[in-house]
Amino acid sequence: MQFEELVDELARRMTDSSFISGTISQSRTKSDEVKRVKVKPIELKGHLHLQFEYQFERILQHENVPASEVHGKLSELLERYKQVHAEFADEKIHVQLSKKFKVMWKSDQIHSKKVVDLSHNRKKQYLLDDTTPYPFLIRLGVQSPDGKVKKQKYDKFRQINRFIEFIDDSLTHLPKDRTIRILDFGSGKSYLTFALYHYLRIEKGLDINVTGLDLKKEVIEECRQIAQDLNYDNLEFLVGDINDYNEETAVDMVVTLHACDVATDMALARAVRWGARVILSVPCCQHELFGQIQSPELQVLLKHGLIKERFSALATDSIRAELLSLVGYESQLLEFIDMEHTPKNILIRAYRTEKRHSTETIQQYKAFRDMLGAKPFLEKELLQSNHLFLSE
Results as ranks from 00 to 15, higher is better:
residue 321 A to I: 08
residue 169 D to N: 14
residue 123 K to M: 11
residue 193 T to R: 01
residue 223 C to T: 06
residue 137 L to I: 00
residue 74 L to R: 06
residue 359 T to P: 12
residue 24 I to D: 00
residue 222 E to S: 02
residue 212 G to V: 04
residue 243 N to E: 11
residue 159 Q to Y: 10
residue 148 K to Q: 14
residue 89 A to K: 07
residue 128 L to F: 13
residue 42 I to W: 01
residue 143 Q to A: 06
residue 48 L to N: 12
residue 30 K to M: 11
residue 156 K to C: 08
residue 361 T to N: 01
residue 304 H to L: 07
residue 328 G to Y: 10
residue 66 P to W: 03
residue 201 R to S: 15
residue 180 I to L: 12
residue 124 K to W: 06
residue 309 E to C: 05
residue 136 F to M: 03
residue 273 R to C: 15
residue 308 K to Y: 08
residue 114 K to R: 05
residue 133 P to E: 02
residue 294 Q to M: 05
residue 110 I to H: 00
residue 124 K to R: 14
residue 80 R to H: 06
residue 274 W to S: 03
residue 298 L to M: 09
residue 313 A to V: 08
residue 73 K to P: 07
residue 391 S to C: 10
residue 280 L to D: 03
residue 338 D to F: 07
residue 369 R to H: 07
residue 53 E to A: 11
residue 145 P to A: 05
residue 27 S to E: 04
residue 182 I to C: 00
residue 276 A to R: 09
residue 171 L to I: 03
residue 292 Q to F: 01
residue 41 P to H: 14
residue 255 V to E: 08
residue 110 I to F: 02
residue 347 L to G: 05
residue 334 L to F: 00
residue 54 Y to Q: 09
residue 277 R to H: 13
residue 10 L to I: 09
residue 389 F to S: 14
residue 96 Q to V: 11
residue 55 Q to N: 10
residue 329 Y to I: 02
residue 278 V to M: 12
residue 273 R to G: 15
residue 339 M to T: 12
residue 252 D to H: 09
residue 21 S to Q: 13
residue 132 T to G: 10
residue 391 S to H: 15
residue 100 K to V: 01
residue 347 L to C: 12
residue 101 F to V: 06
residue 186 G to W: 04
residue 57 E to D: 02
residue 195 A to D: 02
residue 390 L to Y: 04
residue 326 L to M: 02
residue 224 R to F: 06
residue 187 S to A: 14
residue 33 E to Q: 00
residue 26 Q to R: 15
residue 365 Y to C: 08
residue 262 V to D: 03
residue 221 E to S: 05
residue 219 V to I: 15
residue 138 I to Y: 03
residue 362 I to Y: 08
residue 82 K to H: 08
residue 31 S to K: 04
residue 101 F to K: 15
residue 230 L to M: 02
residue 195 A to R: 03
residue 223 C to M: 11
residue 127 L to S: 07
residue 39 V to L: 15
residue 349 R to S: 02
residue 362 I to S: 09
residue 127 L to A: 05
residue 54 Y to A: 03
residue 188 G to V: 12
residue 272 V to M: 04
residue 134 Y to V: 10
residue 117 D to Y: 11
residue 46 G to N: 01
residue 222 E to P: 04
residue 79 E to Q: 12
residue 121 N to E: 09
residue 299 Q to T: 13
residue 78 L to Y: 08
residue 310 R to E: 13
residue 45 K to H: 13
residue 388 L to S: 07
residue 352 R to I: 00
residue 122 R to C: 08
residue 135 P to E: 02
residue 355 K to S: 13
residue 376 P to G: 00
residue 384 Q to A: 13
residue 362 I to P: 03
residue 376 P to N: 08
residue 103 V to H: 01
residue 105 W to Y: 15
residue 288 E to V: 00
residue 191 Y to V: 12
residue 371 M to I: 06
residue 327 V to D: 09
residue 255 V to D: 07
residue 95 V to C: 12
residue 362 I to R: 14
residue 281 S to I: 10
residue 299 Q to W: 10
residue 110 I to K: 05
residue 150 K to F: 12
residue 316 T to D: 01
residue 22 G to Y: 02
residue 131 T to S: 04
residue 356 R to F: 07
residue 141 G to R: 02
residue 43 E to S: 15
residue 115 V to F: 11
residue 275 G to M: 03
residue 153 K to N: 11
residue 232 Y to N: 10
residue 313 A to P: 06
residue 268 L to E: 01
residue 215 L to G: 15
residue 103 V to Y: 04
residue 376 P to T: 01
residue 188 G to L: 07
residue 216 K to P: 06
residue 382 L to P: 03
residue 7 V to S: 09
residue 60 L to W: 02
residue 132 T to C: 14
residue 295 S to I: 09
